[in-house]
Amino acid sequence: MALSSSSEIVRRPHPLEAAIGDTRVLLDVEQGLYFGLNGIATSIWQRLEQPVRVSDLCCSLKAEYEGEAARIEAEVLAFLALLDARKLIEIRA
């Protein structure tokens, strides 16, 4: 499914998760792979707990972080593509 600002994003079930210092560590038990999230990445990950549309996600990030809308969207899409490649999220519609 192609990723765009109108896509809805859902976390895939159950990677294990813990905070170590400032890093959010995820473990996909099936793939046996660890992922570390820092700073804004953690904040995006936390907002994916419930299914969310990319445009809404960007709006809420813009409200919290100063930044140009276009740049935020570009960065969010790049990060989501990364999560998708590692099978941590599912992209709907």
Binding site: A18, I20, V29
Partner: peptide, 18 residues
């Protein structure tokens, strides 16, 4: 893992790492 401890072990590792 066979005894279903993947999550407990993961959290134990995280606790030690901290």
């Amino acid at each position: 893992h066979a005894l279903g401890r993947a999550e407990t072990l993961f959290q134990a590792r995280a606790l030690i790492a901290n």
